[in-house]
């Protein structure tokens, strides 16, 4: 099962992932269409900033022990067969309990529709829109094994480069 991983050293803070996410969750699925839609489509990834100058995209981790799913008082949050924790907007009553219990702060509140929303890993796409949009590949869509293998390779080549001086 693939997940969205963040390579912390790569984020440029350009917000491209946010734009791509909002567009993917629009009706028109185009930027120029999305910006004129009502209600305005919402991004589900948030580019944050930490002193002195760290930038990072934050999005739903689809936690194994998803606190939002268990806390939901209306049965609107469930885990799909693919392991994605999704919010069923039809069942959501906008009580914001999930917002209150999410330790990552990645559940959004849609004020016009009075529903919560979050990353759904772009079910209509092979690769989530944020990942495709990231110009520096700070966001990657891989299995845990692939991702850790890549981290190992990168560390190994750095060591080799270091030894070569």
């Amino acid at each position: 099962m693939k997940e969205i991983f963040v390579r912390l050293d790569r984020c440029m803070g350009c917000h491209s992932c946010e734009i791509a996410c909002a567009v993917e969750h629009s009706k028109s699925k185009t930027l120029f269409g999305a910006i004129f839609e009502h209600p305005v489509p919402k991004r589900r990834v948030y580019v944050e900033w930490v002193k002195p100058d760290h930038k990072l995209p934050v999005l739903c981790r689809h936690c194994e022990d998803a606190p939002c799913m268990h806390a939901c008082i209306s049965g609107a949050i469930r885990r799909t067969a693919e392991g994605v924790v999704i919010t069923d907007e039809d069942k959501c009553i906008g009580c914001w309990t999930c917002v209150m219990v999410c330790p990552y702060g990645v559940i959004g509140r849609h004020l016009e529709t009075h529903r919560s929303y979050r990353c759904d890993r772009c079910p209509d796409r092979d690769e989530p829109a944020c990942v495709s949009a990231c110009p520096t590949k700070a966001l990657v869509y891989q299995t845990v094994d692939e991702f850790s293998a890549n981290v190992r390779h990168a560390a190994a080549s750095e060591m080799v480069a270091g030894e070569r001086g």
Binding site: M12, G13, H15, W49, K55, P135
Partner: peptide, 10 residues
């Protein structure tokens, strides 16, 4: 505005 876009910054 933070974070500001790194492409613009550079």
């Amino acid at each position: 505005q933070l974070p500001q876009c790194g492409f613009g910054e550079t």
